[in-house]
């Protein structure tokens, strides 16, 4: 089911658990690639996967821009 969170749309059916969203977010905020330090988190469980964001999220949109599968997109005009 498509989820709308934090100004983003997340479609679990397209998500492959590639971690790119979390890798780029952590790199942007800590200069290191470290999914545990990302402000976005994907609880991967196939079609039942869910997305969540920490309060620290800067709404920079990088996570969506680096999602290779179009599973995470910015909702137009929100961010």
């Amino acid at each position: 089911m498509i989820q709308e969170v934090n100004g983003f749309q997340y479609d679990p059916s397209k998500c492959t658990n590639c971690l790119c969203c979390r890798l780029i977010c952590s790199f942007n905020s800590t200069d290191r690639f470290n999914p545990l330090k990302a402000h976005i988190s994907i609880d991967f469980n196939g079609p039942g996967s869910t997305v969540s964001f920490r309060d620290e999220c800067l709404k920079c949109g990088l996570c969506a821009r680096y999602c290779p599968f179009g599973a995470l997109v910015e909702k137009e005009g929100v961010n």
Partner: peptide, 17 residues
């Protein structure tokens, strides 16, 4: 097939759920 699956950082996702 239920979906595709990636190794970390892979934009191809050739594995299958």
């Amino acid at each position: 097939r239920k979906g595709s699956y990636s190794c970390p950082s892979c934009p191809l996702g050739c594995k299958g759920q």
